[in-house]
């Protein structure tokens, strides 16, 4: 792994944290409040106890997957282009799992955690009543988060002959 790749990796991880904890919530509050707020739903409450924990867990999942990816590619000893390319399906599997994991986290912290623990997020509710449009926005943000928290760091920091194995890398970095 080259020196500048360490810097890019650290920068992209730091940017991911800022995105998940600050920017994303700001976007929800200021740009998508209309879509997220349904009857009887307090958006601030939902962001604090519903979406934020879900996206925090997703961030942890993406960060773990990123560490596993870096460790795998650093320790890998590919003997050929073909062997190197065999990591590409692994990357896609990781990305798909992370996306589904993110959606499940949303579902858990929005709906299931309340049923399982027998608690109520607000008076008279056994889950957060997120409208359909809100669900679509949240699920889209899961995809966006996986891209920002997994694709970007792996794109910038995959070492050695794995440098171009991440989808899109040949187009974006192939001339470098």
């Amino acid at each position: 792994m080259r020196g500048h790749q360490f810097i890019l990796l650290a920068a992209s991880v730091a940017l991911g944290i800022i995105w998940v904890y600050i920017i994303q919530n700001w976007i929800f509050l200021n740009l998508f409040a209309g879509l997220l707020v349904g009857p009887g739903l307090n958006l601030n409450d939902y962001l604090q106890t519903g979406s934020s924990p879900a996206f925090t867990v997703l961030w942890a999942g993406c960060f773990s997957a990123l560490l596993i990816w870096i460790a795998q590619t650093l320790s890998g000893k590919p003997r050929s282009s073909k062997e190197t390319r065999q990591m590409q399906p692994m990357w896609w599997i990781a990305a798909v799992i992370l996306t589904i994991f993110g959606w499940l986290c949303l579902a858990w912290f929005t709906v299931f955690v309340w049923s399982v623990t027998g608690t109520s997020p607000a008076a008279g509710m056994n889950s957060y009543p997120v409208p359909a449009g809100g669900w679509i926005v949240l699920m889209g943000f899961v995809v966006l988060d996986v891209m920002l928290l997994f694709w970007v760091p792996t794109l910038l920091a995959s070492p050695r002959t794995y440098r171009l194995v991440v989808p899109g890398a040949v187009t974006l970095l192939g001339s470098r």
Partner: peptide, 25 residues
């Protein structure tokens, strides 16, 4: 090694080959 890689490059699109062989570009 290298010659086998080049033989592999004849069977797949160049972009696919490059994704596992950045040195080739």
């Amino acid at each position: 090694n290298v010659s086998h890689d080049i033989a592999d490059a004849q069977k797949v699109p160049m972009r696919t080959f490059l994704s596992g062989a950045p040195w080739a570009r």
